[in-house]
C-alpha cells in the first residue's frame, strides 16, 4: 500500500499513468454512455404515468449520483493527502471540483425541466432538490476558496480540510433538510406514487451511471495532467517533455 502510494504519488509518474488511464477508459466510457443513451431514449417503453417525459431520468439521476460520488471521491483524496501527504491527491481534488459542480448543476437543471411537466412548476422545495442545491453551493464555496488562496501549499491543505468539514456536515444537512421537508410538505403538492421500475428500464440507467463515472475519470485525468504540468513547470522532466514534443511536431 505504502509503496504503491509513493510510486503513483510522484507527479512525474502519475502524469504518464494518467495519460494511459485516459486512453484505456475513454472507449469504455463512450460505449457505456451509448448503451445507456440509446437504450434509455429509444428502446425503453414509455412510462405509464409520465409518458415520454420520464426519459430525462436517464440524465437526471446519474448526474445527481455523480455529484454525490465525486464529492466522496474528493473526500477520500483529502484523507489521503492529509495523512500521507501525497501531492497528487490534492491535485485530484482540484481536478474533480469543477466537474462535480457541473454535474450538480446538471442535476438541478434537468430536475427543473422534469418538474415542469410533473409538478406543473419549474421548482419546488422538495427535499432532494434542496439537498442538491446545497451541494451545488458547497462546490461553489470550495472552488471560491481554492481560487482565493494564492499560496498553493496552504491552499491545498485548506481545501482538503474544507472538503472533510463538508463531508462530516453533508449527512447532517441532508437529514435536517429531509426533516424540514416532511414538516413543511404542503397538501397541494401530490407526488405521483412511483412503482418499482421495470428491469428493462433500469439497465440503461446503470449503463449511464457507469458511463458517466468513467467519463468523470477521463476528464479528471486530463485535468490532472494539466495541473501537474502547471505545477511542475520548472522541473527538468517537463522541460525534456516539451523539447521532445516540439521536436516531434517540428515547432
Amino acid at each position: 500500500m505504502w509503496q504503491f502510494l509513493h510510486k503513483y504519488g510522484s507527479p512525474k509518474i502519475f502524469y504518464f499513468t494518467a495519460g494511459r488511464w485516459f486512453r484505456w477508459l475513454a472507449l469504455p466510457s463512450l460505449c457505456f454512455l451509448l448503451i445507456g443513451l440509446v437504450g434509455g431514449l429509444a428502446f425503453v417503453p414509455e412510462d405509464y404515468y409520465q409518458g415520454e417525459g420520464f426519459r430525462i431520468i436517464y440524465i437526471h439521476a446519474p448526474s445527481a449520483f455523480l455529484a454525490m460520488g465525486i464529492y466522496s471521491m474528493m473526500a477520500i483524496s483529502a484523507v489521503i493527502f492529509l495523512v500521507w501527504r501525497i501531492k497528487v491527491a490534492a491535485m485530484w481534488i482540484c481536478a474533480s471540483a469543477p466537474i462535480g459542480a457541473w454535474f450538480s448543476f446538471l442535476a438541478l437543471f434537468t430536475g427543473a425541466i422534469w418538474g415542469k411537466p410533473m409538478w406543473g412548476t419549474w421548482w419546488i422545495w422538495d427535499a432532494r432538490l434542496t439537498s442538491a442545491l446545497i451541494l451545488f453551493f458547497l462546490y461553489l464555496g470550495f472552488i471560491a476558496l481554492q481560487s482565493a488562496i494564492t499560496d498553493r501549499q496552504v491552499g491545498d491543505k485548506a481545501s482538503a480540510i474544507l472538503v472533510l468539514i463538508g463531508v462530516v456536515n453533508l449527512p447532517i444537512i441532508h437529514y435536517s433538510v429531509i426533516w424540514w421537508n416532511t414538516l413543511h410538505q404542503g397538501p397541494t403538492i401530490s407526488r405521483l406514487q412511483k412503482p418499482a421500475m421495470d428491469p428493462s428500464m433500469v439497465y440503461p440507467l446503470y449503463g449511464m451511471i457507469i458511463g458517466l463515472f468513467l467519463f468523470y475519470f477521463c476528464i479528471a485525468m486530463l485535468r490532472i495532467r494539466c495541473e501537474i504540468l502547471k505545477r511542475e513547470g520548472r522541473s527538468r522532466w517537463v522541460e525534456d517533455l516539451v523539447r521532445e514534443k516540439m521536436a516531434r511536431y517540428r515547432l
Binding site: 446545497i134 453551493f137 458547497l138 471560491a144 463538508g166 444537512i173 435536517s176 433538510v177
Partner: peptide, 15 residues
Amino acid sequence: LLMILVIPFFIPVLI
C-alpha cells in the same frame, strides 16, 4: 468569502 463558505453549514441550525 466567509459567507459563501459558511452559510451552507448553518442550514441545520437555522432549520
